[in-house]
């Protein structure tokens, strides 16, 4: 599966690039990233917990930077395995950062391989989830660009029951706007019955 997109963030490209290589910031921004540490100049390791289509995966992973052209481009390979789920994941990612007015344009391309039970979910489901994860990442990363490097937050449980989109809350996350409860919609049959009752009442 190939994914790619771009977004702009309100920070200089050097700042953005440094944040991408900063493990605590990335841990806070990547949805479901419960652990992330940099073991040497080019290697990271961590744990990713997330839910796709009600399938919860919990995968230890390692990541290697296989190409670096600071502050423009970084290429990395991530591999992880959820033994209990009988699934493994491999991501080959390329990320570029370009100046864009006062901010930076971030472009990424990913080749994602999901093998095993998770892979059976199919591209359409994975793609839908990926779009959601990207949106959450961009929101969190934008906040991080504004606020600077992130201090290590306390782990937050991920993939709470019935909440597929739940992710680690970034430390500076503002409270989500509270929507008013939607008006309960009446079924077509009830509307028809109400209409007849109305006619009868007239």
């Amino acid at each position: 599966m190939k994914f790619g997109s771009s977004f702009t963030v309100p920070a200089a490209s050097t700042t953005v690039f440094d944040l991408f290589l900063d493990a605590p910031t990335m841990r806070a921004c990547i949805p479901g990233c419960e652990e992330l540490e940099r073991t040497d100049e080019t290697h990271f390791r961590g744990r990713l917990v997330n839910t796709i289509a009600h399938v919860r995966f919990n995968a230890a992973f390692s990541a290697e930077i296989v190409g670096l052209d600071a502050p423009h481009e970084v290429r990395a390979v991530l591999q992880g395995e959820d033994q209990r789920l009988g699934s493994s994941i491999k991501v080959q990612a390329t990320l570029t950062v370009q100046p864009d007015g006062d901010g930076s344009l971030v472009t990424y391309a990913m080749e994602l391989a999901l093998w095993g039970k998770l892979g059976r979910l199919g591209e359409s489901i994975v793609q839908r989830r990926t779009v959601e994860v990207e949106r959450q990442f961009v929101e969190a990363f934008t906040r991080a660009c504004t606020a600077g490097p992130v201090e290590l937050p306390a782990p937050v449980s991920v993939g709470a029951r019935g909440s597929e989109g739940a992710v680690s809350a970034p430390p500076s996350a503002p409270p989500a706007p509270v929507r008013s409860a939607p008006e309960r919609r009446m079924s077509p049959l009830r509307r028809l019955l109400a209409w007849f009752r109305g006619r009868g009442a007239r």
């Binding site: 599966m1 391989a113 999901l114 093998w115 892979g119 059976r120 979910l121 591209e123």
Partner: peptide, 15 residues
């Protein structure tokens, strides 16, 4: 049968 990097992605009767 649709494959993605060696993985069958529609190997259920749902798909």
């Amino acid at each position: 049968l649709v494959f993605d990097q060696g993985q069958i992605v529609n190997g259920t009767l749902l798909d």
